[in-house]
Amino acid sequence: MYVLIVGGGKVGNSLASRLAQEGYDVALVEKEEKIARKIAEDIEKVLLINGDGCDPARLEDAGIARAQVVAAVTGDDEDNLIICQLARDTFGVPRVIARVNNPRNEITFQQLGIDTVSSTTIISKLIKEEATIGDIFTLLALKRGKLSLVEAILKPKSPVTGKSIKALKLPNDSILASIIRNDTVIFPRGETVLQPGDSIIALSTIEKADELRQALLGTE
């Protein structure tokens, strides 16, 4: 898979080296010659292009036509927007992702149909999530922190222990994905009865995570 990254700052730099190490075919476009040179010395296996990533001609040089993913991670939000639009609408790149530096611009990007990653928003959501969930572990935050995959281990006194799945009253925006019992994965059916020590894997929105915790583990 060919991935094109625009912007050779800290984010672009580490993203490029990480993806290259994982075996992806990676190209990085950086405007500043000095920075580009430095990256070329530091990272192996990444094709480095010195030029303005907002210039469609440079993007073409960088082989954007065969890129499956374009990530625009420069420090300027307006540049990231335009890079993603060019990639998607002019060059037909299937997946484009923009870094949003100023969280105020996130809504604009979404209104214009460009997927964003904002570290500020993610961190604040993760903190909020940590604060709400408590004794449920978050395994994975999905959709930029809007949805999480959580794990809860049932105790003998937990309100759901000994009950069947169909008897459970769980919050609307959550679903049990699986149960791990003695290292065996069980896909829950209505008849499945929960036992102490069961590790429950559930998918929930951040808002419902606390309700889910209460439903599974009680208010202890």
Binding site: C54, D55, P56, A57, D76, D77, E78, D79, L81, I82, L86, T108, Q111, L112
Partner: peptide
């Protein structure tokens, strides 16, 4: 150029401003 493009798209697509004009230096863009 990119700021001009971004603000113009906000005006046109989000706020439906009837007349939006965008100065762009780069002929390609």
């Amino acid at each position: 150029d990119n700021s001009n493009i971004m603000v113009s798209q906000i005006a046109k697509k989000i706020y439906n401003v009837p007349r939006v004009l965008t100065r762009i230096y780069d002929p390609l863009r």
